[in-house]
């Protein structure tokens, strides 16, 4: 247990330095930490899905690299260098041992209107 707590604290400090509690809260609530790579991630990944698809994942570096490569095969317009930057950003924050994400309690979304 001590080791788990230590890992969580280390992960949180890596995000916000002085305020690990705030960093952990940001991760669980799905915020994307400010970082030089954030605009690139938003620009490439969110063409097809919202950021919550990323922020609920808890993956290791290899899993993130594989996932980003898969998205490029699916059509995400990213260069080799951009794939590396995006993978590094995601691997930095959403690790296997980061605090669990907290999905938002919600009402049903409005159903699409039939064409006729």
């Amino acid at each position: 247990m001590t080791m788990i707590v230590a890992l969580l604290l280390a992960s949180a400090r890596a995000i916000a330095g002085e305020d690990p509690a705030a960093a952990a809260a940001a991760l669980t609530e799905g915020s994307m930490p400010d970082d030089a790579a954030k605009p690139l991630v938003q620009g490439k990944c969110m063409l097809c899905h919202t950021g919550d698809y990323l922020t609920q994942q808890r993956l290791n570096e290899g899993q993130w690299q594989k996932t980003v490569e898969k998205m490029r095969k699916f059509g995400a317009p990213a260069s080799d260098e951009e794939v590396k930057i995006i993978s590094a950003y995601l691997s930095k924050y959403w690790t296997q041992d980061a605090p669990p994400a907290k999905p938002v309690r919600a009402a049903a979304p409005p159903a699409p209107r039939p064409a006729r």
Binding site: P103, V104, R105, P109
Partner: peptide
């Protein structure tokens, strides 16, 4: 009523 947890907003996964 909030009968769901929103997993992803787009695409819709609740």
């Amino acid at each position: 009523r909030q009968d769901f947890f929103r997993m992803t907003e787009r695409p819709l996964n609740y």
